[in-house]
Computed example of a mutant assay.
Amino acid sequence: MLIILAFIILFHLAAAILLFVATIHNAWWVVSPAGRDVIYTDLWYSCNATCYPVENSHTAIAAYLQAVQATMILATILCCVSFFVFILQLFRIKQGERFIFTALIQLLASLCVMIAASIYTAQKHSFHVSSLQEGSYGSSYILAWISFPMTLVSGLMYLVLRKRK
């Protein structure tokens, strides 16, 4: 049982780390123009040699970008809260009970990641200026999609998990 518990904790921590990296790292969209520096764009900034805010990110045209920012931050916060609730429930709930509250929080985190990545996928060309149109998805975008099934599986594991001796 201790090995299963250690696996669940490590799996949850890995999902949380992926969420942190996907939210913070500046590689949601990558452009490699011929003869120039590679341009990395995240949810807030575009960077090559220097970083500058994403153009029009504060306007109503890019309101979906603000939704992606908010849901990724919310997913990261919910994943961390879920971990702390799991640790508290590990010592507080009675033997034989399930970690339902932890599972619900983790499943909400999974839903937030899915919403953020889906919105970004659907609206990928809306906020990029013409010089950034010919790019591709970056590593942070891929990490966001990888963290979705990880948080989903983690939430489902908490639903199945019962506290044993």
Rank of each mutant, 00 (worst) to 15 (best):
S147V: 07
F101W: 10
I100R: 13
A144D: 00
Q66K: 11
V129F: 13
G155Q: 07
S154A: 06
L65E: 07
I93L: 12
A109V: 04
I100D: 09
I8M: 07
S32C: 05
E55C: 04
S57R: 13
M157W: 11
L19Y: 07
Q133V: 15
Q133P: 10
A117M: 14
L159F: 15
F84C: 01
L161T: 15
H58P: 05
L43V: 14
I115N: 00
L43S: 09
A60E: 15
F20A: 04
I24K: 11
S82I: 01
C79P: 05
Y40T: 02
R98G: 10
Y137Q: 03
E97F: 11
C112D: 14
N56S: 14
F83N: 01
V38T: 15
H25I: 02
I142L: 11
F127P: 10
L161M: 13
M72T: 13
C79G: 15
L65A: 09
S130C: 09
T151V: 09
Y45V: 05
A75K: 06
H12K: 01
V153I: 15
R98Q: 08
L104R: 11
F83V: 01
A116V: 05
Y141N: 03
L2Y: 03
T151E: 06
L104C: 14
W145P: 06
I142D: 09
F86W: 02
G155H: 08
L18S: 12
P33R: 05
Y158D: 05
V54F: 01
L104T: 12
Q133S: 13
Y40H: 03
R98K: 12
N26A: 00
F101E: 09
Q89H: 05
F99R: 02
Y158A: 08
M157E: 11
Q106C: 06
F99V: 05
C47F: 02
L90G: 08
L107A: 12
R162I: 15
V54N: 00
C51H: 00
Y158M: 09
I9R: 02
A70N: 04
G96E: 04
F99N: 04
S46M: 01
E97D: 10
I146K: 08
L5S: 07
S32W: 05
L2A: 05
Q133E: 14
A109T: 04
V153C: 11
V31T: 06
Q95E: 12
